[in-house]
Write a protein that binds this DNA or RNA. Sequence first.
RNA 1: GUGAUUGUAGCUCAGCUGGUUAGAGCGCUGGUUUGUGGCACCAGAGGUCGCCGGUUCGAACCCGGUCUUUCACCCCA
Length: 461
Amino acid sequence: MSKQKPSIPKGMRDFDPTEMARRNYIFDTIKEVFKLFGYQQLETPAMENLSTLTGKYGDEGDQLLFKVLNSGEFLKKVSMDDFRNGEPEVLSKIAEKGLRYDLTVPFARYVVMHQNEITFPFKRFQMQPVWRADRPQRGRYREFYQCDADVVGTDSLICEAEILMMINQAFAKFGIMDYAIKINNRKILTGMAEVIGEKGKEGDLCVAIDKLDKIGWEKVSEELFQKGFSEASVAALKPVLEMQEKDNKGWLTFFKEYLAQSTTGMKGLEELEEVLTLFSMMGGDEAHVVFDPVLARGLSYYTGAIFEVKVGGVQIGSVSGGGRYDNLTGVFGLPGISGVGFSFGVDRLYDVLDALGIFPVQQKESTQIMLACFGEKERNKGLNILAAFREAGLAAEIYPELVKIKKQFNYADKKNIPFVGILGAEELANDSISLKNMKSGEQETLSLESVISKVKNSTTK
RNA sequence: GUGAUUGUAGCUCAGCUGGUUAGAGCGCUGGUUUGUGGCACCAGAGGUCGCCGGUUCGAACCCGGUCUUUCACCCCA
């Protein structure tokens, strides 16, 4: 074997112990909130049958799927004719599995497969990596985690209100104060397209409108003209876009008049109002919930509420988003199952907490005390003491080699272990431990019991 | 997928218009200190300059390809 420089695939990452401690903090916090609202955890395999995945994310999505080569002689089934017929023909014969692209489609597959065992409404959450063969950029990876929570099998708007509550609570736990949950409704967007006289074109409308704060009104209207919108309809749109300063109540009043001619639009408004009412009945903090009529995402599948969360004071895209969809499981042969769900972007949340400097300082995952021993006799006694530490619930370790005490201390220092218990001839003779506080440098000779209580009191909060 | 951009020691980076044995800081190892980490001082190890090919008497430097990094677009978390 020749030497090779080790590397990892493009767009994939290692997480060192510090990063893992912080990531686990994020996962644990989110998980806690999900559970508090009655969501149950689900896991699905990294690979799905390619037939489950293809065609669910559009042509672009299919391109971004990681396909897994069949085991064995994967070329055996391929004929020269297949080669002449092109890539799709060959692909279907050499790869029948693929890595999951998101958590929603595998979830839909699961619901259909287990429809007879599931009690609806079904509330599940899922925190697993997904893979996309995208071109990586900052904050965009080929392997990343999604934290999804969905409830399927009910149209109740309580679910939407609960999602707002969960975001509220998660952010409160993280200590994020400055954030906005933007909320809109697909039916309102449909209504807008209707009342400006461009029925059915809310897709194009939204793609253009969405860029408003990026490229400005002039370019947006230019784009709309290009998409075939008439002069009159673009003019009819203008009042909405110029209405930037309204609060939620103001918007609702405005839209009740603006959308009066569209039954769909009015339905969307009703839903929105109902969600906000339910949310406040649950005791939600309305200060963070902002109706945004230009919020448009996931239009290919969302049919009702749409949300997105932006954190203030940092230049990072949305950290959470979701919405209501009809007919989640239709493609797998189970029509009529609707649901609403949302997702936290762990990698972005990490960046936000990092940028705001609000990760908890205390690393509860690190060792609380290490034993340093001068010789073999001390080491042997140390093993007993070590067991007692662990019995008492302390994260403890002993330096595994009989080396110079300096080296042992150095290890403890590098690993940020707050206490070192020293065992030498003296300590052995009078059955004690010298406990050194690595931060203050103070050292005292104590009994095993007092070492345990001392370390416990000063390292657990 | 389109257009740019980056790559030199474990890390962050110097390295002149192409010219001997490629440097610094931090980190690492050992020592000053055989019952004590951080600080200081001393010594040392560590690089086929991303990879492949070309131009040249001579390439870290110029050219082509490839991989990687970052950025914009597209799309998205």
